[in-house]
Simulated assay, not measured.
Amino acid sequence: MSAIRIPGPGTNVAVCRKARDLSQVALARRAGVSVSLLSKIEIGDRALTQGIAASLAQAMGLTLDELLGTEPVAKADEASLAALNYAIRRFDIPDAPPSHPEDLPCELAELNEHRYRTELGAVLQKLPGVLAKSTNYAHATQSPDAWTRVADVYSVVYWVAARFRWMHLAELAVMKQQLASERAHPIAATVAARDEAGAFLNSGDFAGGLAIVDRAVVEAESTLEGRDRAYGLGILHLRGLTLAGRIKDKRTAQQHIDAAWRVADKFPEDIEDHGIHFGPENTAVHVISTTSDMEDHRGALNTADDLIRNGLTLPATRVGPLHMNVGRSRLALGDRDGALEALEEAWNIAPEMARIHPTSQELMRVLTSLHRRSNPRLTRLAKRAGVPF
């Protein structure tokens, strides 16, 4: 078993290190991690977290997405991706507006439903048409409502590109989203800032992302009112706590956690606006992830147990990663069976996301590497994931 090279982001570390003629000692020293931890990550005895990955990437002159590895474009998605790039390129070259603009809100809602179910292929298939029609209609009417819709569609483009770690596309989407938000309602600029900070997050520049969040919070406090203000500040603080957790800045993370909970108290239950959920449940999901990032795995599991026991109303796009984070905390505490159970749940809830998510890939890599005996459940899951085991 130990001779099999299980695919996953952690496997890329040794490949990139050797390509730069670095020893484990040299890379560990540059990245500020122990040689023992680096060795365990490379051989598959420890999962590579995105915080550690960012440190290793920076030490090798890479971005986080470059180290984690970009997901290849599936043959079935090539035409959709080409059409999407064409629609993005023609942002300022409007075509004829759609003949039935009244259908646009429904089309965007359907697109987001695919997103919430983590149906990435369906999102890619429908995105070009929705984006082109929304953009053409916005140019024809120049209404804030129409431009807000364009910004919301670009938020979906950012989301799907970030999932596949196509960061050039994600960053381009954020740029267009910001341009659209300049002609839209003020809340669109807040959502765009949240996604811009996400691009920093996905590239491993956590401090830069925090600077974006801080600036956006100040702007939101002065430009937004009522429900938009609470919602906008809420999604910014969720992004902030995630970024702070990745660099283990406990003070800043706690500040964003406290602020997010204060805003979440204004919502009896989670809401969905502009394609993004916010409320008590999603705040708890983000806190669990950040608590795991800061290696308080027992605390993360206690919070997760309470949340799951009370029942979840969030969509698969949030619940799938929740179980992945439960799995990594259980694995960190030595509970392999519990980690496998959580990974199975993530695959059952969000299979398309589980296949490409770095946390899911690392859980699979480490579990298959550590198991030296037959495990039918793990074998079935590995087969489903296309992993040799």
Rank of each mutant, 00 (worst) to 15 (best):
W347L: 04
E281N: 09
E345V: 03
R377W: 08
Q177M: 15
E78F: 09
R251E: 14
E352I: 01
P351A: 09
L370H: 00
A57E: 03
R377K: 14
G10E: 02
E113Q: 15
K176N: 12
V15M: 12
F389Q: 09
Y154R: 03
A216C: 07
A207G: 08
E171R: 12
R194V: 11
L124Q: 13
V156Y: 00
T63N: 06
E281F: 04
A284L: 10
G208L: 07
E66R: 12
L363I: 02
R373G: 07
A82R: 15
R365V: 05
Y231T: 06
Y154V: 03
G327Q: 03
R373L: 11
G334M: 04
I187H: 07
A188F: 08
Q178L: 08
D293F: 13
A162K: 06
V150S: 13
I235H: 05
R90F: 11
R17H: 09
P9N: 09
R29D: 11
S203M: 12
T359E: 14
R163V: 02
Q254M: 14
F91N: 00
D95A: 14
A54V: 10
G51E: 11
S39R: 11
G240N: 10
K40N: 14
I93T: 13
R246K: 15
G209Q: 10
L363P: 07
D293P: 06
I257G: 01
E102S: 11
L333M: 14
W261C: 08
D152I: 09
R262C: 09
V157Q: 04
A87F: 09
H168E: 15
G129I: 09
E71V: 13
H357S: 06
V191H: 02
K126W: 03
S39G: 08
K126A: 14
E196K: 10
A161H: 02
L340P: 03
Y86F: 10
E113M: 13
D335P: 00
G10R: 00
S369I: 01
P351R: 04
Q177D: 08
T135M: 12
P376W: 12
G51W: 05
A207W: 02
E66T: 13
A346D: 00
E281Y: 02
